[in-house]
Amino acid sequence: MNPLHQHPDGGNGVRTRYWLGGLTVGFLGLAAFFLVTANSQPAARPRIPLVDVKFLSTAPWRQTYVDLVKAKEDLSDYDCYACHDQKKPPVIRFDAAGKVLVPKEHANIVMGHGSHDRNNLCYNCHNEQNLTTLQVRDGNVVKFDNIPALCGSCHGPTLRDWEAGAHGRTSGYWDRSLGDPQRLVCANCHNPHAPRIPTREPAPPPHLLHGNPATPEAAEPAH
């Protein structure tokens, strides 16, 4: 029988004290438990690594002649007549399959303009009379700092899109009254000798709140 419901009088004062003391301890214990849990932090979430800052870079993939001049970098690659003779245009040699034999001095050049391998003649773009300039097929000479004019002589629709801002990268201001947009030119993204954009490493997939098999590192507990 529950002693709390007993009438208090009649010689059971010791039992009453015993019960009251027990209840006091119980309540104080509960209070302590509440206070401790109120201060505790929620369970630590799995650690998610911060994304590599290389994926946040807005820098162009390539530097053009103009960029190199601006950055006051080494322009020796454009000093053609350090090796070539001004009066003797270099002769292009072909292998049995009709492909250009790239001399070992130009071994860094990958010949890959066009998937059909037919646009493989250096003088389609380079000016044989003056190697420090370029030429379009109608004979007009183009300087190294005017790349879109050269590329656009064949890729007309792309040039039209680029001029309208629909092709290529733009940054800065969409509102031309507030600031200038910065445009990149063809060679900032495309290697003229192998213009197809190479494949790239993608940034990591999303980490979902309740785990994602694609990003297993999130399954590790935080330390």
Binding site: A166, R169, T170, W174, L184, C189, R200
Partner: peptide
């Protein structure tokens, strides 16, 4: 403020237009 969005400026192939 007249500027392009961040996703556009970082796009390495110019696929985003705004």
């Amino acid at each position: 403020a007249g500027r392009y969005p961040a996703c556009l400026e970082v796009c390495p192939v110019g696929a985003r237009k705004f």
